[in-house]
């Protein structure tokens, strides 16, 4: 007999697949209504002949009827072929994947750090709820939440100019010859630290609020009150009982808010010229490189859908009640 958990997984999986399909369709039509002929815009040159334009249109399949383009698109979509970049003239996936890796190198540590810090402050605020400490932590968190990432990035650039003297653009000193691992790492970290701080800061506030609210919910439950009455030590109470219960809603809320983190990443990457997907999107808009835009959009949305799916799985695994 199939277990309840398996059914739950399958149901969620189908839901996610529908979402992916919806995104794919949406994505296709979204990019077909852009104004201007991309070929003529991209190749704006006085020496361009009509034959050249036609040859390029044929190359990118832009001369076919919309419906046919859509069918081709769907087929390619599910076989992992996202087309040829208008600008780079190589398969989109070849450009996208290295950029995605670069983005993750920045995003993962920043989100994890923000969550880690958020757990500490959020938990502390919830424990001290109603006191001055809680109010100040909350206010500070809301302040952080209101910070636009590109502005924070800019401020760090200013700081770097005057005091820190750290590089503010790129990911490495390209072309360097590194005598050993440590100079290599040092070079990377110098480029990494400012965007990392920016992303951590802007997500930290939000996570603190989320975790605080989830904790408050848990701390007002009867069993916690009972535990307090029984004289369970504070630390053990918080970490053993409360945190574990609060983690569940926290995980799902964070998964839902992944889109916001991605948005922060786009802006941060633009400010620091970090060669990730965000900067790629920004450049693709300038180049009108539809295939790249489509690919990047798909990769991002699918990542978010996947993250939500994983969060759901985790939730279902840890809390059997939601499987129904």
């Amino acid at each position: 007999m199939v277990s309840k958990y398996a059914i739950f997984v399958i149901r969620r999986l189908i839901g996610s697949l529908i979402a992916v399909f919806a995104i794919a369709t949406f994505n296709f039509f979204l990019f077909r209504v852009l104004p201007g002929n991309p070929i003529e815009l991209l190749f704006r040159s006085p020496t361009l002949t009509p034959q050249q334009i036609r040859a390029l249109e044929e190359q990118f399949g832009l001369n076919k009827p919309m419906l046919q383009q859509f069918v081709i698109y769907l087929y390619n979509f599910f076989t992992g072929n996202y087309g040829i970049s208008f600008y780079y003239r190589v398969p989109v996936i070849n450009v996208l994947i290295p950029r995605l890796v670069n983005s993750l190198i920045l995003l993962l540590p920043a989100s994890l750090a923000a969550i880690a810090f958020g757990i500490f402050t959020g938990m502390y605020a919830a424990w001290k709820r109603g006191t001055k400490v809680d109010v100040s932590i909350l206010t500070a968190a809301m302040g952080l939440y209101s910070l636009p990432s590109f502005w924070v990035g800019g401020l760090l650039i200013l700081c770097s100019l005057f005091y820190l003297k750290l590089p503010v653009s790129g990911m490495f000193t390209y072309g360097s010859v590194y005598p050993d691992v440590w100079t290599y790492l040092e070079d990377f970290l110098k480029h990494f630290i400012l965007p990392f701080i920016t992303l951590t800061l802007i997500t930290y506030g939000e996570f603190t609020i989320i975790i605080r609210n989830c904790m408050v919910d848990v701390l007002t439950e009867d069993y916690i009150k009972l535990a307090i009455a029984q004289g369970t030590p504070t630390l053990r109470l918080l970490s053993r009982n409360a945190l574990k219960n609060a983690m569940l809603p926290t995980i799902s809320i964070i998964a839902i808010n992944l889109g916001l983190i991605v948005a922060g990443a786009v802006l941060t990457e633009t400010v620091f010229a970090w060669p990730g997907v965000g900067r790629l999107i920004y450049e693709a808009i300038i180049h009108r490189d539809y295939p790249i835009l489509q690919g990047a959009f798909i990769i991002i949305t699918i990542s978010v859908v996947a993250a939500n799916f994983i969060a759901d799985m985790l939730y279902g695994y840890l809390d059997p009640r939601v499987r129904h």
Binding site: A22, I23, G259, V262, V266, L267, I281, Y282, V304
Partner: peptide, 13 residues
């Protein structure tokens, strides 16, 4: 669906 799509990316596009 709209909750999952990164709003800023979509807004830019």
């Amino acid at each position: 669906f709209f909750l999952v799509i990164p709003p800023l990316v979509l807004m830019i596009v």
